[in-house]
């Protein structure tokens, strides 16, 4: 009877699970490293909410941190056996989203456009395609971009406080694009969907800021007539959306 249940099965499974545990521990060490670097970058970027002149410097610093992360990702990729990305991916999804957010933020502050997934992957030293190796998951990318939207709505209010009245308009336009982009996706009822549902609040907040500026004629270097025209143009833009 005892032959039917081969206790070796349990022994083998124990070995298997111990092995997995070991890999997880290694992953955790590297992920902690990345978390540390990302935190540094986050702190650097906080300056944008209080000093507009230091944006360029902050971006440079953040870029440096991000490129350091790329090296850690290389180490991480070496730990993960081929084809087992999603077995362990829960360890790094959160931090990867954070880094996507940071990279997107930097690129937006520097150049004013939305960073593509390919570019983020390149910045982090990752692949875009799962078949090519350790890659940037598309859902992580999309989540990271949504985080950026929240940050931008905060940035819009703060840039008004600091007297930059043009920036919210730019941000508003950018967010409108982003919003319509996300509407193209058929989202399942999952975490990404939930996070996307919060995007409208960020959009709303920015639109309120734009409204406040427009109604008071607070735009930099604009005379009242041009302002009226601009507001009308904005209004018709809104309608079209």
């Amino acid at each position: 009877m005892s032959n039917f249940i081969n206790l070796n099965i349990f022994e083998n499974y124990q070995k298997y699970i111990d092995n997995e545990q070991e890999i997880r521990e290694k992953i955790r060490v590297v992920v902690r490293e990345i978390e540390h670097l990302a935190k540094e970058a986050t702190i650097q970027l906080q300056i944008i909410h209080s000093d507009l002149t230091k944006i360029d410097h902050a971006c440079m610093q953040a870029r440096k941190q991000i490129s350091l992360c790329a090296e850690s990702y290389k180490n991480l990729a070496e730990i993960i056996p081929v084809g087992q990305y999603y077995r362990y991916s829960d360890h790094w999804t959160f931090i990867t989203q954070r880094l996507v957010f940071l990279s997107a933020m930097v690129v937006y502050l520097e150049a004013g456009f939305l960073v593509t997934r390919e570019t983020v992957a390149e910045m982090l030293g990752l692949k875009t395609n799962h078949a090519d190796g350790f890659h940037l998951d598309i859902e992580d990318y999309l989540m990271g971009i949504l985080q950026m939207a929240s940050e931008l709505s905060r940035f819009a209010t703060n840039s008004v406080t600091m007297g930059d009245y043009d920036r919210p308009l730019n941000i508003s336009r950018f967010m409108a694009d982003l919003n319509s982009g996300y509407r193209l996706l058929n989202l399942k009822n999952d975490g990404l969907r939930k996070r996307f549902d919060a995007l409208k609040y960020d959009v709303k907040k920015i639109e309120e800021v734009v409204y406040d500026i427009s109604i008071r004629g607070l735009r930099n270097g604009s005379n009242p007539e041009a302002l009226v025209a601009a507001v009308q143009a904005d209004a018709s833009n809104e309608e079209n959306k």
């Binding site: 939305l114 319509s180 982009g181 996706l185 989202l187 399942k188």
Partner: peptide
């Protein structure tokens, strides 16, 4: 470009789902 990029993301997500 944003919408163009998102179109390809949409295709990828749909394929997954």
């Amino acid at each position: 470009p944003v919408l163009k990029a998102f179109k390809s993301y949409a295709a990828e997500l749909d394929d997954k789902h």
